[in-house]
Design a protein around this nucleic acid. Structure first.
Length: 604
RNA sequence: GGCCCCGUAGCUCAGUGGAUAGAGCAACAGCCUUCUAAGCUGUGGGUCACACGUUCGAAUCGUGUCGGGGUCACCA
């Protein structure tokens, strides 16, 4: 098996050093440097080698080198390429029809009957990580879809993945909801008000802010200076007292805290379940916030940390371009980053991780850099295995989302809206009138969530993105439902003519010698790329690579579908070939969409 | 102010050293007696923010300018 019979993946690059021996000794490994890519549709050929970078080291003209290389490839290959052309420094190679059919067969067996590479790294992906004082919003959705999808992509590349979440369940902001509930709710519960628990608690968090603002205004009108008023507002003083009571474990406070957090978890569970999000491990900040104090002592002992006059503990990171950072307050209490260090260590030790990925917004880039640097200075061996998968904020066309100004897009509301839009579209088209209530409900969820997940995952995670709440998310074009529709169409064909049970060799030899149409060739070559796409997505921790690929695949299939009939193909051989192309397309679509957390319907 | 990210069609985004810069939406014109028209085909739409540089070749790399955002908490 020479390199020239190998598909694109193994032919990825060519190396000028080996190319120097442009003769019979040039086999497999001359493959490192000049990119082999797909030929652009406007030129003849399937794969292209760009010759320019090879010209200088080899001291050849484009035409000479192209001819030499082209001839050599044809001579060396065992039946993969049929010919080549050279245009302005580009060597375009054409693949033989029967080689493509063989390629289809190979990939069909690999993909349809499962073949997985296994790297067996242990990876933890921490995502979602909500506060328990308000419901999930659009920003969380991007985080959740991203974290979940990256986890699945890593699994598909053979890693052992633990999905985790750290719940921010303590602190002054939690007490704010609690105080407001005590003061204004008259004992209202999710059941008594028929409200989802996280929303109920969130409402009191808003109520707190309203009341607080009122009280500050009142104090200022009495002639008290602003800064002072903000400290003196009665509701704020009560809240601070409650935080102290909580830390001292005062029974009534603990009871209220457990009760209200319980409501929130019930609410989150409903949303997570609907989204298909799941976690192998949930950490609670109430359990972890005291972690990390040990390291402070350790760091002090070995001189990494130092103490200031008031007893507070610091680290100086100015040698790596960062600032001084506080690790312990003068009163001995820890800050956020101290807890983080403790949790990092716990994670790596408990799970024996090779990598720990944090899905956190890009406003915390600095924080994560500091965390990593402190771990490094403390000599922790896993410091470099901490990876911050940062993603850009979702902005609205009307500006940023701000909870205080009521411009937050609530996750549950958005899901409902998308599912409802799916319902409207489906009813208008009227294609599934025979579905039961149950089946319809499931379809609407599949389509609505599919549209939403695809919308948020098709963009490079690192980039900020804009969401227009006025226009609902589309169901046409570069969308989840478009891809889902393509899948449903293929399933429809297969229901009609029957799915091939297995592809026995006899069948393959029967179809081996056909002349292929351009769209048939294009699909086979494009399907071939799938395993590379999964690998690339894992390497970049970027689901949008998959979203772009699967859209392009669906698009190509739809063109094929319009141009060529499967069921009424012009010959039995064509029919068999096309059925297999269709099955493989549907399998890849289903697999790719699954990696994005999107399911595909049999009919829509 | 220091550091980091971003600027591509009217809008939302691909493309990060190679051929004439691509999709989707929006606009316009076609295509359902034939496997699902949530589809397909076509048209119009670009100073790739700007300038200089490196290179056979730059949206892509470098420097500078302009514009937008983030961050530099005894907040989490």
């Amino acid at each position: 098996q020479g390199w020239a019979t190998a598909p694109l993946g193994q032919l990825a690059e060519l190396n000028p050093r080996h190319l120097k021996e442009l003769d019979d000794s040039l086999p497999i490994s001359f493959a490192r440097m000049a990119a082999l890519s797909e030929t652009k549709p406007e030129f003849e050929g399937d794969y292209t080698i760009v010759l320019f970078s090879l010209l200088k080291p080899l001291k050849e003209s484009p035409d000479n080198l192209g001819k030499k290389l082209g001839d050599l490839i044809l001579k060396k290959n065992t039946g993969f390429f049929s010919g080549y052309n050279i245009i302005k420094g580009f060597l375009n190679l054409s693949v033989k029809d029967d080689a493509l059919t063989a390629l289809l067969q190979k990939n069909y067996n690999d993909i349809c009957f499962g073949k997985k590479s296994l790297s067996h790294k242990k990876v933890m992906v921490e995502y979602s990580s909500p506060n328990t004082n308000k419901p999930l919003h659009l920003g969380h959705l991007r985080n959740i879809f991203l974290g979940w999808s990256v986890s699945e992509i890593l699994k598909a590349n053979g890693n052992e993945v633990y999905k985790s979440s750290i719940v921010n369940d303590r602190g002054i902001h939690i007490c704010k909801s609690m105080i407001a509930w005590q003061q204004f709710a008259n004992g209202a519960t999710p059941v008594s008000t028929n409200t989802k628990g996280d929303h109920l608690v969130g409402d009191y968090y808003v109520k707190f802010n309203d009341e607080y603002k009122e009280e500050v205004k009142e104090l200022i009108s009495q002639g008290i200076e602003k800064g002072q008023a903000e400290k003196e507002a009665p509701i704020m003083k009560k809240t601070q007292q409650m935080l102290l009571d909580w830390e001292n474990g005062k029974p009534e406070v603990m009871e209220l805290w457990k009760k209200m957090n319980g409501w929130v978890y019930d609410g989150f569970d409903i949303t997570y379940k609907r989204l298909g999000a799941d976690f192998d491990k949930t950490f609670y900040e109430s359990n972890t916030y005291l972690l990390g104090k040990d390291f402070v002592q350790e760091g002090l002992n070995n001189g990494t940390f130092y103490t200031k006059d008031d007893g507070s503990v610091w680290i100086d990171l100015s040698d790596v371009g960062l600032d001084e950072k506080l690790l312990l307050r003068g009163d001995g209490t820890s800050v956020y980053i101290t807890q983080d260090i403790g949790l990092v260590k716990q994670k790596f030790e408990e799970y024996n991780l090779d990598k720990s990925i944090y899905v956190i917004g890009d406003e915390q880039i600095h924080h994560m850099k500091v965390l990593k640097e402190i771990c490094r200075k403390l000599g922790m061996p896993f410091a470099d295995k901490i990876i911050h998968l940062s993603y850009g904020m979702v902005e609205l066309t009307t500006g940023k989302m701000k909870s205080r100004e009521g411009t937050v897009v609530d996750a549950d509301d958005l899901i409902d809206e998308m599912v409802d839009t799916a319902k409207q579209h489906t009813e208008e088209l009227g294609k599934v009138k025979d579905f039961t209530e149950e089946e319809l409900k499931e379809l609407y969820e599949t389509l609505g969530l599919g549209a939403m997940k695809f919308y948020l995952l098709r963009v490079d995670p690192k980039k900020r993105m804009v969401f227009n709440p006025e226009e609902s998310i589309d169901f046409h074009g570069f969308t989840g439902p478009f891809v889902q529709y393509t899948y449903a169409r293929i399933r429809s064909i297969l229901r009609k003519i029957g799915e091939p049970v297995s592809m026995v060799n006899g069948q393959w030899s029967m179809i081996a010698d056909q002349k292929l149409f351009p769209l048939e060739r294009e699909l086979i070559i494009f399907l071939e790329k799938y395993s590379n796409v999964i690998a690339q997505a894992a390497e970049e921790l970027n689901p949008s690579v998959i979203a772009n690929y699967v859209f392009h695949l669906a698009k190509t299939f739809n063109s094929f579908y319009t141009e060529h009939s499967v069921a009424n193909a012009e010959s039995e051989e064509k029919k068999i070939l096309r059925v297999h192309v269709a099955v493989m397309t549907s399998t890849v679509i289903k697999s790719a969409m699954q990696l994005l957390g999107i399911s595909v319907p049999e009919r829509m």
